[in-house]
Simulated scan of single mutants.
Amino acid sequence: MLEAGELAPDFALPDQEGRLHRLSDYRGRWVVLYFYPKDDTPGCTKEACGFRDEKGRLEELGAVVLGVSADDVESHKRFAEKYRLNFPLLSDPAKEAIRAYGAWGKKTLYGKEYEGVLRQTFLIDPEGRVAKIWRKVSPEGHAEEVAQALEALRGKGA
């Protein structure tokens, strides 16, 4: 399992416009890499809209936001347009990055156990190392929580 301080696994995934993004493209910047189960579902929408609304603050702190799910590019495009999402949503249908970050595992819904994408967030520092991990994310207020952690790590917290 990936731990804080380790080098974050690189990836090459397309966004909702079909543009390829590699983690290595973002060296020198902070990266908020968040994994979410499914486009246009209540919790995922709440989380995505939170990151949309906090994007300016996160950018001021030198960070870029990247969302990742197993949905395809077309699904991401519809989701991004519907909620005016202002950051890349990366498509990982083969679940390569999802598995590399340990964001795939057992989940329970209505008493039934199944495997799926786990809602997790990784804050990656400008050198490409994992600075902080949220393994159990509550969508409500999560983007603000990430921004506060980034402020603290950068020494700009109150």
Results as ranks from 00 to 15, higher is better:
18 G>I: 06
27 R>G: 01
50 G>S: 12
81 E>K: 15
46 K>D: 00
80 A>G: 04
50 G>N: 13
31 V>H: 00
28 G>R: 00
50 G>R: 08
44 C>W: 00
71 D>S: 08
67 G>Y: 05
82 K>V: 11
50 G>M: 13
33 L>H: 04
82 K>C: 04
46 K>A: 10
56 G>R: 13
62 G>I: 10
68 V>N: 03
61 L>H: 06
34 Y>E: 13
30 W>C: 09
16 Q>P: 02
82 K>L: 08
55 K>G: 00
47 E>K: 09
21 H>W: 15
32 V>D: 00
37 P>V: 14
44 C>I: 06
31 V>R: 00
59 E>P: 12
64 V>Y: 12
58 L>R: 13
67 G>H: 08
41 T>V: 12
67 G>D: 11
36 Y>P: 10
65 V>P: 03
77 K>W: 04
30 W>N: 05
40 D>R: 01
47 E>P: 05
64 V>W: 09
78 R>F: 09
74 E>W: 05
23 L>V: 10
14 P>Y: 00
60 E>S: 14
73 V>H: 02
41 T>Q: 10
21 H>R: 07
82 K>D: 11
19 R>I: 03
27 R>N: 01
59 E>N: 15
84 R>H: 05
53 D>W: 02
19 R>T: 10
19 R>P: 00
84 R>L: 03
21 H>P: 12
26 Y>N: 01
78 R>M: 04
65 V>L: 10
44 C>S: 08
57 R>T: 13
79 F>H: 11
42 P>E: 05
29 R>A: 02
67 G>A: 14
54 E>A: 15
56 G>W: 06
60 E>P: 01
25 D>V: 11
54 E>R: 08
18 G>M: 02
63 A>K: 07
64 V>R: 13
28 G>I: 12
27 R>A: 05
73 V>R: 05
30 W>S: 02
61 L>V: 12
15 D>E: 10
23 L>R: 02
35 F>M: 07
24 S>L: 11
50 G>H: 12
60 E>N: 14
14 P>F: 01
41 T>W: 07
52 R>T: 14
60 E>G: 15
60 E>L: 15
57 R>C: 08
13 L>T: 08
31 V>A: 01
35 F>N: 07
22 R>I: 06
55 K>F: 12
79 F>P: 07
28 G>S: 07
38 K>E: 12
61 L>K: 02
55 K>S: 11
71 D>G: 09
80 A>P: 01
51 F>K: 11
70 A>E: 11
17 E>K: 00
45 T>W: 04
39 D>P: 08
23 L>H: 03
35 F>I: 14
24 S>D: 10
17 E>D: 05
60 E>V: 15
52 R>Y: 14
58 L>T: 15
